Amino acid sequence: MMRGILFAWVLSATSLAHAQSPTDYSDAKRRADADEASLPAASASALRDAQGSALEAAIAGCATPTADTSPFVVVAELDASGKVVRTWREGGTPLAICVQKRINGSTLSAPPRAPFFTSFELSFTR
């Protein structure tokens, strides 16, 4: 009996841990990598298209002629409708901060489950 109760508690604790929102960028990025890798090809393509549109709008609103174009990453948590409900960022340039603010609250394509995590990884070449 005790073994069954312990197993049920471990199983529910594991489910709860997965349902909780990440506490930092590293956790969020791991979740994004796993969620993106789980997508079938057609869904992954639709997500990339939606990310491209959101990113294009963010960059257009944030870019300046002298922007620091150091690489950065923004991880986004999507709800069931595809709305970005939370973001995390690696990189502290003004451009990275502005892009994160513009992505937060935008809407991508509806994910197969919620929450769903995805990342925008940016590097610029001249």
Rank of each mutant, 00 (worst) to 15 (best):
M1L: 12
M2G: 14
R3T: 14
G4A: 15
G4I: 08
L6Q: 14
F7V: 11
A8V: 06
A8S: 15
V10A: 13
L11V: 11
S12Y: 05
A13G: 11
S15L: 15
S15W: 08
L16C: 09
A17V: 04
H18E: 12
Q20S: 07
S21Y: 07
S21W: 00
P22V: 02
D24I: 05
D24R: 07
D24L: 05
Y25W: 15
S26H: 09
D27W: 02
D27N: 09
A28T: 07
K29G: 03
R30H: 10
R31P: 01
D33M: 11
D33Y: 06
D33K: 09
A34K: 14
A34C: 06
D35N: 14
D35A: 09
D35E: 08
E36Q: 15
E36I: 13
E36D: 15
E36C: 04
A37R: 11
A37T: 06
A37L: 09
S38D: 13
S38Q: 14
L39S: 04
P40F: 00
A42S: 10
A42Q: 12
A44D: 12
A44H: 10
A46Y: 02
L47F: 10
R48D: 14
R48G: 07
D49H: 13
A50R: 02
A50S: 15
A50L: 10
Q51G: 06
G52D: 13
G52E: 13
E56H: 13
E56P: 05
E56K: 11
A57P: 02
A57W: 00
G61C: 10
T66Y: 10
A67V: 03
D68A: 14
D68R: 12
D68G: 02
D68C: 03
S70V: 06
S70I: 04
S70W: 09
S70K: 10
V73C: 07
V73M: 04
V74K: 04
V74Y: 02
A76M: 10
A76C: 10
E77L: 03
A80E: 15
A80K: 13
G82M: 09
G82C: 08
G82T: 05
G82Y: 07
K83D: 03
R86M: 07
T87K: 00
W88K: 00
E90I: 01
G92F: 00
T93I: 04
P94V: 02
P94F: 04
A96V: 01
A96Q: 01
I97R: 01
C98M: 12
C98D: 14
V99L: 08
V99R: 01
Q100F: 01
K101R: 11
R102W: 03
R102S: 13
S106Y: 05
S106K: 03
T107W: 08
A110L: 09
A110P: 08
P111C: 03
P112T: 01
P112H: 09
R113V: 04
A114V: 03
A114S: 15
P115T: 06
F117N: 05
F117W: 12
T118P: 03
T118H: 01
S119E: 14
S119M: 06
F120W: 07
F120N: 03
S123M: 04
F124V: 12
F124K: 13
T125R: 15
R126D: 14
